[in-house]
Amino acid sequence: MGFAIRTEHLRKVYPGAHGASAALEDLTLDIPDGRVYGVIGRNGAGKTTFVRIAATQLVLTSGSATVLGHDVATEERAIRTRIACVPQEARPLYFLNVDEVVYLYLKLRGLDPADARARTKDALEQLSLTEFRRRTVSRLSGGLRRRVLCAMVLASDAEILFLDEPTTGLDPIARRQVWEAIRRAIRERRTILLTTHYLDEAEALSARLALFERGRLVLEGTPEDLRARVRYPYRVTIQGSTPREELQSYGRVSAIEGGFLVFARESEARDLARLALERGLKVGLGPVSLEGIFLDVVGRSIEDEGPTPEVEG
């Protein structure tokens, strides 16, 4: 296994951002090839900045980044022949129909028309877009437009696909279809750099994950690695009446409907579960989800737009 993307002390400060903190700071990362690599973080965490630098769309300030062994600053041409990207907030050209968006993108990349036609048909089928193939983009819902963009890059011959929040706005069924298409791309030994707000999506698809916060890499590893590194790798849900103060000695407590959610270490989680069972309360015990890890590390939910509190070690 090699590395698709490598960065060393990567830093990005946007021009004119005087006094502001860097959008990316001291990012050193190795992204293996042939897998989905998930990048998660709140808005403004630096996910898109990282994707845009790796996809040769944005100039880096300092440090270095290579894609497929080529330097993003000096060997863009060698990289661009082997990548494809769905940018965040991208929209397909509204006057094209669904079939044209995919087919013409492939022809634009230089694919032979017969090959482009076959790939288009395949991608549209895979993402359940065949019935919309003659429909103009301007008459599609936001979710369908996003799906068309996914079909466009998944149909390409690129070795690395950059998908910047590709499933935003999709309904659960459409999201699952995109996930299936992503899994198929992985079976074809392609590398996917996926940024997402959906932690379940990152967890379901990613072989490794990076958690960004305020331009810095906070955690990196497989989902299991991440769980092992958080302070409270277990979650205990308790349904019923219990004094909150009593629970706080076991770990971090959050109120949920009808009870509490406690993030705890393994021994405390077991003790708490035993205690709750002795009191006749309903108890659930298991490893933390990615949402739990995020809460533990960042100190607030991924959906929270407010400023981040200082996080312990």
Binding site: A55, R80, C85, L108
Partner: peptide, 12 residues
């Protein structure tokens, strides 16, 4: 449309 970004990250 972010179309230029799509094109930049391609062989074009």
């Amino acid at each position: 449309m972010k179309f230029q970004d799509v094109v930049v990250a391609s062989p074009v």
